[in-house]
């Protein structure tokens, strides 16, 4: 039983990370029509920044770190947007944009490796210690991750689904031309979306650093985020969140019968979902025209 709880806990906490990455992916896909292959690198960048601030520079003030990180993330978001989106607004091949994100991801990763650290490092947790209940142990960091992720997700969810400025951004994402005519500055909204996504994914990386250690392989989370987006239901933020948690749980429970073929289980589920209910678990509601 303790094992089951442990698995569930790991599953949900990893799932929340997938969910944030998946949400970012979804937002960018909606806002800029770009499939961002640098998402994993951005996550790793967050972790590297935490190492830089906490271990290398030994900053003591938490607030200072958060502000600095925020500044870096926003800067990266703006640069990322102006490199990977703006030049491609009128491109004939949307795939060029995708390749560009791969390139940008490589640049981000290499910068981290070259200028911060090339080795796998560990970072001390933000909240040290752990809670032991019954037979198993929960480090406090997990609670912190839960809390912070839930906070970010609800914030984002409300921003994009409920609030006016979020709806303006969604509108700009859906039909650039109409939004331009309505006087919505689409370039600005897209850039803001990029910044928000980078911040969100970056801070998730930051939170993960103590649990998964700081290394370039953190970018592997990206693949699971792709799966989450589809399993949850393509096109909606709610779907991305539920999909992320589901993928986390599937992965955690799959250790009951296999450890080597985890990928096969997760992505097999992805293919099954695509084959039998391509709308995902949470259909997004918009019906397609028959053609």
């Amino acid at each position: 039983m303790a094992l089951f709880f442990q698995q569930t806990l790991t599953g949900v906490s990893v799932g929340l990370v997938y969910a944030t990455v998946a949400m970012g992916l979804m937002l960018l896909l909606r806002a800029a029509g770009v499939m961002n292959f640098a998402q994993g690198n951005l996550l790793a960048m967050g972790a590297y920044l935490s190492f830089l601030f906490m271990e290398k520079l030994q900053l003591s003030s938490g607030l200072l770190m958060v502000i600095l990180a925020l500044a870096v993330f926003v800067a990266v978001g703006c640069v990322f947007c102006s490199v990977c989106f703006l030049p491609f607004k009128h491109a004939k091949w949307p795939q060029a944009m995708m390749i560009c994100t791969i390139g940008a991801g490589t640049v981000i990763q290499e910068c981290c490796l070259l200028f911060i650290t090339a080795e796998t490092r560990s970072v001390r947790p933000i909240l040290a210690g752990s809670l032991s209940v019954g037979g198993f142990v929960i480090p406090y960091q997990y609670f912190f991750i839960f809390g912070a992720m839930l906070f970010m997700m609800t914030g984002l969810f409300f921003l994009f689904e409920k609030m006016y400025c979020g709806r303006v951004m969604s509108a700009a994402a859906q039909n650039k031309y109409a939004a331009d005519l309505l006087g919505i500055p689409t370039n600005l909204t897209t850039m803001v979306t990029f910044c928000i996504v980078v911040c969100m994914v970056g801070f998730s990386g930051w939170l993960l650093a103590p649990v998964y250690r700081v290394s370039a392989s953190l970018s592997n989370f990206q693949a699971r985020a792709f799966a989450s987006v589809v399993i949850g239901g393509f096109g909606s933020l709610k779907g991305a969140i539920i999909g992320g948690i589901l993928v986390g749980l599937i992965e955690a429970y799959s250790t009951y019968f296999t450890t080597t073929y985890k990928d096969v289980v997760v992505f097999g589920c992805l293919l099954l979902v695509l084959a039998f209910c391509p709308q995902g678990i949470i259909p997004s509601g918009t019906k397609k025209e028959k053609a």
């Binding site: 560009c100 390139g103 490589t106 640049v107 990763q109 290499e110 070259l114």
Partner: peptide, 9 residues
Amino acid sequence: NLLYGCLIV
């Protein structure tokens, strides 16, 4: 790799 990334972009 850095060069490679920049080149692609």
